[in-house]
Write a protein that binds this DNA or RNA. Structure first.
Length: 943
RNA sequence: GGGCCAUUAGCUCAGCUGGUUAGAGCGCAUGCUUGAUAAGCAUGAGGUCCCAAGUUCGAACCUUGGAUGGCCCA
């Protein structure tokens, strides 16, 4: 008897059991899951199933196949994956083709470095291309395995690659189409040029960095006759053309400046002085002639104090005039035997310098425009590698940045240097080799942004696109509006040739649509490398003659196309065939792509098809470190995606991606991951609780929603509400909102519902109806919850899904076979259920917070009429929800409808040794320490 | 230097069109539980809502100026 009194009945309980481990060990387990997805063709099978449904396409902006993927890539790629999976689970045909950008200078440079070759002219182009291809493929493979390791779905076995012959054909095909529309021209232009890489650069290939430059003020002296003309302008009687004779009645200023007069200019690029042909003034600015120690200097009065420095104190202002009046005068070049014209330009500012801007049309975009406007010679005394040509006179052969010093010294020696010091400013650098770039006038191929109203049409098309965030529209339009002519030619080897030919008769460069089409066809069959080996005749249509001189002898041009143009036509290569729609439904890239890929894509699309290539542009933020500072690989603060996944696992990092507001800049680091890791463990444990209580449930045991006990049906409503909300948030691209909703849900389920279920689940008999109802609700909850989190926590959702007993999974083998599609939801009923849920939570909180322990308590609830009615419908489930031994519910007409008062006292009876509830014990002589219910359960067990 | 964005608890973030004592999760402290146990539950302490001025009966929210950080451009 005493033995029975002290018996521990633990072994008669149905305690939770599951193979789903508490410890995630993600880095170890995830790669196996990736392999399983692949083997089971989970993505492909779901696609096939969705094939008949609406297509939905996220078009992948290609990462550059060079270097390891970092956390910025991770964020972007995982977000893309989330949207693909959301569409997939929504039943859409979400065909995702990842791609890589594989041509271009960075790979060429890396390959040359790899080969130990300094001068790229020293290697055969075809051999270099072969090596570059190897290198690019090597990086593609590494990046692809990292990307697959992230758990992303897509056709990774057949990505699009810009080096594929078919892709090269698309590029050239697009060139042909644009040439046909006369959207491309070749012209001399001052373009950004990298002297290290010996190629023209696009705007997008420039990074601004701090650089120390010489800052010099230089005199441009006037000859006596030039001085006379200036003097007449200053007297207000002359004009720049000198036709009006000087008025002797007004005293000349010249006697005051016996040492002569000069224009004073300022520059930070002394090496551009050999190309100087003009001095630009601002029309509406006031210019003064200052006398200092017998010499005269002309500069803007607003800048005289800063430009003249200490000597300003001793300066005397002799006369003033406006820039406009000085237009047309001349000064002498400081060291070359020629004049420099005084011209006007509106970009002359009065913030720095002298207001008299040294102008070299061959070495600056603004300067070039001015040169064209005034029909000035466009001098380019600098060769491709940055050395002066003979045109530079005494400096011929010198490297320009080295010549700076020499030029300054010479100016000092000749007495024309006014002042010199060092100056730190932000200066454009080559994005890859990090060397400072220059402007250099060369002949290049351009897309004419204003031909056929291309720019305006692109902006119109941009207006028809949706944006997240909304200001993206303004940003993209700005980029289109401000972007200069698009220089698409590069003088390198690793790329797709621009199939232009040069007439040997007249030297005309020709980009003929038919030749380009022939090239596209040929490249598509044999790869673009054949451009270097084929004779030019391969590409010429029959009877082709030079449209300019009528001759028929040609040679191939050796330019390749800008890789921004290549990535700008990925939409043509990937979309619009094989059932994949054009345009795409979504593109999602970092904010730098407004200027890059978002822009280049829409320009090519509008030029060729007059529509935007995407319907919705979503931008993700930058990944900074924990202090909000940029992570940079060069500074060693960058974190590789691969390393991070090995350390923390992809799913914790995926959850991190959802835990931050990805549209803004986000922070990443060990502490941030640590925090999100704890949220992860919470979610995992709550999934584990649900799974561990499905034990012993067969499909035939599962009860339908309407047959469930009230509390269980209520919990199912809470699940529905969560899934519906999460789906709605996903549809608005609000991954972070969905994350918050998921966390809120799993937390409320755990604290209210799971606690209430423990007693019914553990102490009831195996086939007890109460238990079956609870299990059925848990099955419903876990399945729907796993579906809801699968786009984010793909690994964990799948792992858990596999732990649902197979018969209960039905034909949904993978969580990605499941669906968001909900039972039809009655919104009003749902709202009522949620309100009741909250009321229960409030009551439970009062009990849990009281001094009396859960099952030691008896609760008396007095509730207003309406609340009483709702609570009464729960029956004994109300007592369960409060986790107490006894519960009396009384209607209190005196209280407000939804009000309740709670009285918590000690429960009657004694504590049952098995179920811990307070009951009358001793009804069963064999089990004197048990309540009647437990006794009967044990009897069945031990029969 | 210009444009855009951000700034709310130690951390990640909510706070709808301005309206009582500004919220959640994580962390922290305390207590309970020890039949989800390297778990679970409850309670609590943390905030000059970047700063300043203005509009308003009333401002985290609107206006202006500034600070810090980020992106893009020059």
């Amino acid at each position: 008897m005493s033995e029975q009194l002290e018996r521990d009945y633990r072994d008669t309980l149905r305690l939770p059991t599951t193979a789903f481990p508490m410890k995630a060990e993600l880095p170890k387990r995830e790669p196996l899951r990736v392999a399983w997805w692949h083997e089971e063709r989970v993505y492909e099978r779901r696609l096939e199933r969705n094939r008949a449904n609406a297509p939905w396409v996220l078009h992948d902006g290609p990462p550059y196949a060079n270097g390891e993927l970092h956390m910025g890539h991770f964020l972007n790629m995982v977000l893309k994956d989330m949207f693909v999976k959301i569409a997939l689970l929504d039943g859409k045909w979400a065909d995702f083709v990842p791609g890589w950008d594989m041509h271009g200078l960075p790979i060429e440079l890396e390959t040359l470095k790899h080969l130990g070759i300094k001068d790229f002219h020293a290697i055969d182009p075809l051999e270099l291309r072969e090596k570059c291809k190897e290198r690019a493929l090597y990086w593609l493979d590494r990046q692809r395995s990292t990307r697959v390791r992230m758990g992303t779905f897509g056709h990774f076995e057949r990505p699009y690659r810009t080096i594929d012959p078919t892709f090269e054909a698309t590029i050239v095909e697009t060139l042909a189409e644009l040439a046909e529309k006369q959207q491309i021209y070749k012209g001399l232009r001052s373009t950004l040029w990298c002297v290290h890489d010996e190629t023209a650069l696009a705007e997008a290939e420039i990074e601004y960095e701090q650089k120390v430059s010489p800052s010099i003020y230089v005199r441009f002296p006037l000859t006596p006759s030039q001085q006379e003309q200036l003097a007449s302008v200053l007297r207000g009687r002359g004009s720049a053309d000198g036709k009006m004779p000087p008025d002797d009645a007004v005293p000349s200023v010249l006697p005051s400046v016996p040492k002569g007069v000069s224009f004073l200019i300022w520059t930070t690029t002394p090496w551009t002085l050999p190309a100087n042909v003009a001095i630009a003034l601002r029309a509406d600015a006031t210019y003064g002639l200052y006398e200092i120690e017998g010499e005269g200097l002309v500069l803007a009065t607003a800048l005289a104090p800063s430009a003249l420095g200490e000597r300003f104190a001793g300066a005397r202002l002799l006369a003033t005039t406006t820039g406009e009046k000085l237009d047309g005068l001349f000064a002498r070049h400081p060291f070359l035997e020629r004049d420099s014209a005084i011209v006007l330009a509106d970009y002359v500012d009065l913030e720095t310098g002298t207001g008299a801007v040294h102008t070299a049309p061959g070495h600056g975009a603004d300067d070039f425009e001015t040169g064209i406007k005034y029909d000035l010679p466009i001098l380019n005394p600098v060769n491709a590698s940055g050395h002066f040509t003979d045109e530079a006179g005494p400096y011929a052969g010198q490297f320009i940045f080295k010549a700076n010093k020499q030029i300054v010294e010479d100016l000092r020696a000749s007495g024309l240097l006014w002042r010199a010091h060092e100056y730190e400013h932000s200066y454009p650098h080559c994005w890859r080799c990090r060397n400072p770039v220059i402007f250099r006038a060369t002949a290049q191929w351009f897309i004419a942004m204003d031909q056929n109203r291309l720019r305006a049409r692109a902006m119109e098309a941009a207006g028809a696109v949706a944006y997240t965030p909304e200001w993206g529209e303004m940003r993209l339009k700005q980029m289109l509006e401000n972007h200069p002519e698009w220089c698409i030619s590069r003088q390198r080897t690793w790329g797709t040739p621009i199939p232009a030919v040069l007439c040997t008769g007249c030297g005309e460069s020709i980009l003929d649509p038919q030749i380009a089409r022939n090239a596209a066809k040929r490249f598509g069959e044999a790869g673009a490398g054949v451009w270097w080996s084929d004779p030019v005749t391969t590409y010429l249509p029959d009877g082709f003659v030079c449209p300019s001189c009528g001759k028929c002898a040609f040679e191939k041009e050796k330019n390749i196309v800008d890789i921004w143009f290549e990535s700008g036509v990925t939409h043509f290569a990937v979309l619009g065939h094989g059932g994949v729609p054009w345009p795409s439904d979504l593109v999602l890239e970092g904010g730098d792509q407004y200027r890059g890929w978002f822009r280049s894509s829409i320009v090519t699309a509008v030029a060729a098809k007059n529509a935007a290539p995407y319907k919705h542009v979503v931008k993700n933020g930058w990944v900074n470190d924990e202090h909000g500072r940029p992570m940079s690989k060069s500074k060693g603060t960058g974190i590789d995606a691969k390393d991070a996944m090995e350390k923390w696992g992809a799913d914790v990092l995926r959850l991190w991606a959802a835990s931050v507001e990805f549209v803004d800049d986000v922070r990443f680091g060990p502490n941030v991951v640590e925090q999100v890791g704890r949220v992860y463990r919470n979610i995992r444990n709550r999934i584990r609780f649900m799974l561990s209580n499905l034990d012993g449930l067969a499909p035939s045991d599962v009860v339908t929603r309407d047959a469930m006990q009230p509390l269980d049906a209520l919990a199912c409503s809470v699940v529905d509400a969560c899934v519906t909300d999460v789906k709605g948030l996903y549809d608005r691209f609000d991954i972070h909102g969905a994350y918050l909703r998921i966390v809120e849900f799993e937390s409320t389920m755990s604290s209210l519902y799971f606690d209430a279920l423990k007693d019914p689940l553990y102490s009831r008999g195996l086939h007890d109806g109460r238990r079956r109802s609870a299990q059925s609700a848990l099955l419903y909850a876990v399945k729907r919850f796993l579906t809801a989190i699968a786009p984010v926590l793909s690994f964990t959702a799948e792992e858990a899904w596999q732990e649902i007993p197979a018969p209960l999974r039905g034909d949904e083998m993978s969580v990605f076979d499941s669906s968001f599609a909900a039972v039809s939801i009655d919104r009003d009923a749902l709202a009522d259920d949620l309100a009741l849920w909250d009321e229960l939570r409030a009551l439970r909180a009062q009990v849990a917070g009281s001094a009396v322990r859960d099952f030691e308590a008896k609760v008396r609830i007095e509730a207003g009429i309406a609340l009483h009615e709702r609570l009464a419908r729960l029956g004994d489930n109300l007592r369960e929800a409060l986790v107490v031994s006894q519960c009396d519910l009384v209607a209190a007409p005196g209280l407000k409808d939804d009000a309740a008062t709670l009285e918590i006292t000690n429960a009657d009876g004694e504590k049952c040794r098995r179920c811990w509830k307070f009951r009358l014990l001793g009804g069963d002589a064999d089990h004197p320490s048990l309540c009647a219910e437990c006794a009967s359960v044990v009897r069945v067990l031990e029969a």
